[in-house]
Design a protein around this nucleic acid. Sequence first.
DNA 1: TGTACATCAGTGAACGCGCGTTCACTGATGTAC
DNA 2: TGTACATCAGTGAACGCGCGTTCACTGATGTAC
Lengths: 209, 209
Amino acid sequence: MANVQVLSKGEQTRERLMDIAQDAVLNKGFAGTSIDEIIAEAGITKSGFFYHFRDKNDLAKAMLQRYLDNEWRVFEQLFQQADELSEDPLHSFLIFLKLFADMMGDLPNGHPGCLVASYVYQDFLFSRDVRDMTTEGHRIWRTRFRARLDRIAEHYPAKIDVNLDDMADMLSSVADGGIILSKSLRDPSLLPKQIMQYRAYVKLVFAGA
Amino acid sequence: MANVQVLSKGEQTRERLMDIAQDAVLNKGFAGTSIDEIIAEAGITKSGFFYHFRDKNDLAKAMLQRYLDNEWRVFEQLFQQADELSEDPLHSFLIFLKLFADMMGDLPNGHPGCLVASYVYQDFLFSRDVRDMTTEGHRIWRTRFRARLDRIAEHYPAKIDVNLDDMADMLSSVADGGIILSKSLRDPSLLPKQIMQYRAYVKLVFAGA
DNA sequence: TGTACATCAGTGAACGCGCGTTCACTGATGTAC
DNA sequence: TGTACATCAGTGAACGCGCGTTCACTGATGTAC
């Protein structure tokens, strides 16, 4: 509930164009996705497309911004949900990871792909500001997860010597890698399983066996 | 030593075309890489390119096969090196992971990218047999790593309940994710650090803190 | 309530360039006798 | 050792289609008075 935005006709079309484009980009790459096919599926003309986006790079930028905003919202919501279930920082983070894994496992056709990862593998196609956005996205996630790990480490001294930035990064790592694994082996369950491996690691480090 | 193959003139050109193409594909995607730019850098004509490859998809296939073969050779060599340093299955695997991390850290400009991961994010561009090759690649790595984990588990009962397939997959995961992280944040040291996180996890599971 | 004007959300036609692919041909090198 | 032929590793020119982008225009909706 909430979050049901009222969109004008133009905004609806714009969102729809990005939905179609994102799906295509995640399966064929950005250069492999033509404006022609996007508008064919959306049912408008090419000039209609250019009414919404200055050029193709502008579409790339808008899609990425939307993707990053959305990811942020999802994580915030899961963190909040976890915090409501436990006040202990470690337990809350473990709950968060379980919720995250479940959510990834519940996607009907498996995870469609991470737009950031996709962009990183073709970043020379984009203007500087778009490339900087993928960098910034990863930096934000590191900071966000690291803050959680710091709070945990205050109450549960780590059993081994470990760099918390690396540990924070590992969640991005395992998620990106898990998505690739799931897509490649066509098994949607692999992504949540990878997240649960990360969860097991966190638990071993702070709580032991 | 060894491995210095004698290549005919044609084979040399073919290898050079694939070198140039691979570098371009990892930065711009497959559809974003034109035959024109490859031959411009290689210094031959377009018909020369089609003497070596039936069509563009054939180039994609040859590149991927070469990449998979090469990865296999590298892992075999590292496993062999590790086995020479320790007979114990756990210690040998931990040594292998350290060697692997060091190797990834020693790449002069950081890891250029995993061709398999790149293909997975644009697999609709390729024919069925190429897509199957990425699937098979991941399956082979899982089997290879899983065999090592099985041998470890015989001597060192795991401290927690863990699925060894998932744990085997996690190395691919963390490597693919680490490469993306390194590329995105322009920090070549992140990839080896992620591999070392995985190593810490394996150690905790089988040897404890 | 009616009229004038502005903005929104597009249409339609045309552009030139770059793309992957084909085809007929060629000089250099290798092999058979 | 010389000649005939085959294979290797390409060249050069042309192809048609699809691509991203531009430009002048338009009907529907919103706003001011």
